[in-house]
Write a protein that binds this DNA or RNA. Structure first.
Lengths: 213, 213
DNA sequence: TAGATTGTTAATCGATTAACAATC
DNA sequence: TAGATTGTTAATCGATTAACAATC
């Protein structure tokens, strides 16, 4: 099923960008686009766009361009967001709650199937139509749900432990918000989102600019 | 003040990772590390680590290694997180609230100086010791605060407008959580954090794995 | 057909890694 | 001094971009 052996990570990230852009175009009833249109509107080089797509086959018509809704459907299929995916969230603090209620999850075919926490004060509480479950029941619960995607919104000191549990429960990819480098088996894919790291990089860029008033 | 003309973005991102790791080491009273230690514990190649530092000067002693607390202090200074920085947050929804109360902001020397929203129901409410202000007062308020960092947690359709206002108010770097590509003057630096994009990339990786049970 | 735009190959660019002389 | 580890140069690797024949 996986005809492309080595797709660069930046290509995958851009694919998600294209998809978002195509959804907007589709909503605006645009039917056809060219790679040059994409460059104008997203800033991503036209050759880059064509190259990115080329990892997965042929998508356009020379002299014409790309059919928006067809391209959208095909990229969605490549990213496996053409059918609903169950996702579990561990850590129901502020961030966890925000993610559970994040707008757009549904459209992207992600379904938060369960939320866990270890804090007795949070367990049992309702969070966006979801009862927060005891973290220790993660394995048991996921045996039913079968989620292969987990989102970790726990503190750094709990993250490794929770990751281990999630992996044991069948999770194969992890979106990690905890500021720690997780040690996981090679088959498991982890992506880290670090709010403070992003701010730090931005902070660096304050220096090179012209002095403020 | 900016002796290094062209530091690669990946280097800056890793710098923030090193810093976090060094803070941990310091807390564990480790005094000295070698680049090989860094590789073992973070997975980042030892040569990469040394190369990254080399953009900013000399930090270690041949045959000995790096002094943890000194290195920590110097990286913090490079990233300008050695002194408190005011930050404004626009959009006080779930995500905005989560970020305002995010643990670690203080340690990283970021201070959320004001939060804004355009929803009358949110304006005036208390959010982590902060009164949510009317978005339309952003310019006026930031004239006093002088924040050069803004975090955007508004919906996609409001993001460009808010970004324009923030830039007009003196903001020079933006952390954008809205799923949209902002058009900004060249001098302004934007970093995008896209939760759904991260999930999409992870979702892709589910295919290449061994079949589930 | 002529004009436009694709998919792909080749050229360029930049980042990572290995190797090693310098040095503590 | 001998052993360890740095900072940096050179080699490798991979990603981006330009160019163009194929084709609608």
């Amino acid at each position: 099923m996986n005809s492309s052996p080595k797709v660069p990570m930046p290509t995958l990230e851009r694919l998600a960008t294209y998809l978002r852009y195509l959804i907007d175009l589709d909503a605006s009833h645009v039917e056809t686009i060219s790679s040059t249109d994409v460059e104008r509107q997203t800033g991503i080089n036209a050759a880059q766009f064509r190259k990115d797509l080329s990892y997965f086959g042929e998508f356009g018509k020379p002299g014409v361009g790309y059919n928006v809704s067809e391209l959208q459907a095909r990229i969605a299929r490549i990213l496996k967001i053409d059918q609903m995916q169950p996702v579990i969230v561990v850590g129901a603090g502020n961030l966890g709650s925000a993610l559970i209620g994040y707008p757009g999850l549904q459209e992207h075919k992600f379904h938060i199937a369960a939320a866990f926490d270890r804090d007795p004060a949070k367990i049992g509480r309702l969070q966006n139509d979801l009862v927060v479950l005891d973290e220790s029941s993660l394995g048991e619960v996921n045996a039913k749900i079968g989620a292969r995607i987990a989102i970790l919104c726990v503190p750094a000191n709990a993250a490794q432990h929770v990751a281990n549990d999630a992996i044991a429960a069948g999770v194969r990819v992890i979106l990690n918000f905890a500021p720690i480098i997780l040690k996981v088996p090679e088959r498991v894919v982890v992506r880290n989102v670090s709010f403070l790291q992003e701010l730090a990089v931005l902070s660096y860029h304050l220096s090179s600019e012209a002095p403020a008033t």
